[in-house]
Design a protein around this nucleic acid. Structure first.
Length: 652
DNA sequence: GTAGGGTTAG
């Protein structure tokens, strides 16, 4: 689940100022509210407007006090200029002068002030203005809700929404969009899905079921809670849809692990709906879906469409393209797209850095990171996640440590759980488990499931029972429904031949009604994507695949291939273990690729789990034996097998 | 006078 993030959270925040510096109400001086007089500006307003437009806000402020008196319009101009220039001292100055002039009870200006303080990230001032404005019009309420939502104070919004309903103030169409957004804008882990459903009912009761903006926001709320069925039922029930609602539904599928549905809906949009034209936002989600499916051929078609529609100069589209190519295994093409960009923002750089990272080019990722900085683009928190991830994949521990250090010292970026998870992963993979555990101990924030999950994953690689028990204890509390954690712990026990413990964990998994995720591979042949699992009996070629595997297996054994049967964590006979490892979905996919892709092209496979050691050595062997390049993307990274070696240098 | 979908990581 995601929450709405406030912009630039890594930038230094304004320190809250002391409210006693001035009072926000001044009833003695109150004047009657005048309507906005945009059309008939006084000379003063014209002068102020022109100064504000030139960014000369301080000069404009010096004109006050003034005869004849400033009007509502004067203050509106000044407030907008403060937001634009992001200057809190000037904002406070304008606010003070506004009070002196007796405009402090003007609801129009109160709305503008709320928006201004929201822009300046001063949520306490937002609350103060709201509290002290006695005549709260619906504009004041809405601006207040918007500001709180953007600050991640969703629960507070819902509290006020309740109050608003109790005192009988009717919501308007804007209110509904804000309160729906509030349900997902929460800092804590509490889920406000129930509240969202209640608001859904209010919306229907007040006859807004045909309102495109509200219904799209509603869909998006369900999407962010992972309720794909609810989102799609809202979408299907909409009487009129536009490009935004289509894009929101495509994004919902893409973000909730249903990339195939995303692509299908995009196809529907293209085929059935001639009056709705996809735009750059639509294409970003479509590219994301291709990336998660590793559907390179589909992705190339989409790239062609983007070029034909002239969407290729839009930064987010370009970044999504880079990521699509990198995640589909064609790093060269990603580099090509990147090189062709005449403007590169931090997101584009990050896409390229992580692209190199997942392909195992850690040093190149660091190089690009440094090139970004020398080109004048400052790294964002995600730049560090990308580059630290790259260090982790390539085992560049010392480099990673010093990058983390520079992030805190030089760039003043406060590490988030994600950064710590990267560090724990990097140290853990490199078998520095004690140091990884030490990092967790010294963290100033609560280590979430990502951090403990990284530690548990490393314990699996290096078979550390004691630390694994500590990590999984926390994980079982934090995410009791994540089957992967139980499986990892059971595997670690099995490796240590602690069979009674294995039994206990499997029982726990069963009691909680959870199921182990079985291994699955995807392979694209002729623009179609095929999935293969070890229990697959529906594949029409399954007999041919098995026959080929058995033949290869015997021939390769003669040439020195030794199956790593220790990956089978059951108490079984050796030949039974061999039979099991030969049935792993990745080997099926390799055989499927050899049968159906006979022209010698690279075989590209995607896997839903981490590669097992036997599949890794089998594929290395086969790349030499069959003389084929094989590219496998597992959950974390790419393995490029060629001539009997893998690009990960057996470190993954 | 205010409103809806998207980019990088994990």
């Amino acid at each position: 689940m995601w929450t709405i993030q406030t912009a630039n959270t890594y930038q230094p925040q304004y320190r809250p100022l002391n409210f006693r510096a001035f009072s926000l109400s001044n009833h003695q001086n109150s004047v009657a509210f005048r309507p906005s007089s945009a059309g008939c500006d006084t000379k003063l307003n014209q002068l102020i407007q022109s100064l504000c437009e030139k960014g000369r806000l301080k000069q404009a402020l010096q004109l006050l006090p003034h005869e004849p008196s400033p009007t509502q319009r004067t203050y509106e101009l000044l407030i907008l200029s403060c937001s634009h220039q992001r200057s809190l001292p000037d904002a406070l100055d304008v606010h003070r002068k506004l009070i002196d002039n007796g405009f402090d009870q003007d609801p129009f200006l109160a709305t503008k002030l709320i928006n201004m303080y929201c822009e300046l990230d001063c949520i306490d001032y937002v609350r103060k203005v709201f509290d002290e404005t006695l005549k709260k019009t619906i504009y004041v309420w809405n601006a207040f809700f918007r500001a709180l939502t953007l600050a991640g104070k969703g629960e507070e919004v819902l509290g006020f929404y309740r109050r608003m309903n109790l005192i009988g103030i009717p919501s308007d169409r804007f209110t509904y969009t804000y309160v729906l957004k509030a349900c997902v804008a929460v800092e804590s882990l509490t889920s406000l899905l129930q509240k969202g459903k209640e608001i859904h009912a209010h919306i229907l009761r007040h006859g807004y079921e045909d309102h495109v903006h509200i219904m799209t926001t509603l869909m998006d709320m369900y999407a962010r809670f992972g309720c794909v069925a609810s989102a799609s039922s809202v979408f299907n029930g909409m009487s009129s849809k536009n490009v935004v609602s289509w894009s929101a539904m495509i994004a919902c599928y893409a973000k909730n692990g249903m990339p195939l549905d995303a692509l299908e809906l995009f196809r529907d949009l293209m085929l059935e709906n001639t009056d709705t034209v996809p735009n750059s936002v639509t294409m970003v989600s479509v590219l994301q879906a291709c990336a998660s499916l590793a559907a390179l051929e589909q992705g190339k078609l989409i790239h062609g469409y983007i070029l034909r529609k002239g969407l290729d100069d839009i930064l987010p589209v370009m970044s999504a393209l880079i990521t699509m190519y990198a995640r589909c295994g064609d790093l060269q093409m990603g580099r090509h797209v990147f090189a062709q960009m005449d403007r590169k923002d931090v997101v584009a750089w990050n896409s390229m850095i992580s692209g190199y990272g997942i392909h195992g080019f850690g040093r190149k990722a660091i190089e690009i990171f440094e090139e970004m900085i020398s080109s004048g683009v400052s790294p964002s928190p995600i730049s560090f996640i990308s580059v630290l991830g790259a260090c982790s994949h390539s085992g560049l521990v010392e480099e990673g440590k010093s990058l983390f250090e520079s992030m805190v010292r030089e760039y003043k970026i406060t590490p988030t759980v994600e950064h710590y998870a990267c560090m724990v992963d990097m140290l853990g993979r490199a078998n520095q488990l004690d140091e990884a555990a030490k990092i967790i101990q010294e963290m100033r924030i609560e280590p979430g499931p990502k951090v403990w999950g990284s530690l548990l994953g490393s314990c699996r690689i290096h078979n550390n029972v004691e630390l694994a028990e500590r990590a999984s204890k926390r994980l079982f509390e934090l995410e009791p429904a994540n089957a992967g954690n139980y499986v990892l712990l059971a595997d670690i026990y099995a490796e240590a031949e602690m069979w009674s413990e294995v039994k206990r964990i499997k029982k726990l998994l069963e009691d909680r009604g959870l199921q182990k995720v079985s291994g699955c591979c995807w392979i694209e042949v002729g623009r179609k994507i095929y999935s293969l699992t070890s229990v697959d009996e529906f594949n029409p070629q399954i007999e041919q695949i098995h026959a080929l595997l058995i033949r290869l297996f015997e021939e390769m054994k003669e040439k020195g291939y030794v199956p790593e049967t220790k990956v089978v964590l059951y108490d079984l006979e050796a030949d039974e273990k061999e039979r099991i490892v030969l049935g792993h979905s990745e080997k099926l996919a390799v055989a499927f690729g050899l049968i159906n892709n006979s022209r010698g092209e690279t075989i590209r496979i995607t896997k839903n789990l981490r590669l097992c050691e036997d599949c890794h050595s089998f594929t290395k062997f086969i790349s030499k034996f069959a003389g084929r390049e094989i590219l496998v993307r597992d959950t974390n990274r790419f393995h490029h097998f060629k001539d009997g070696v893998c690009s990960c240098a057996d470190y993954w």
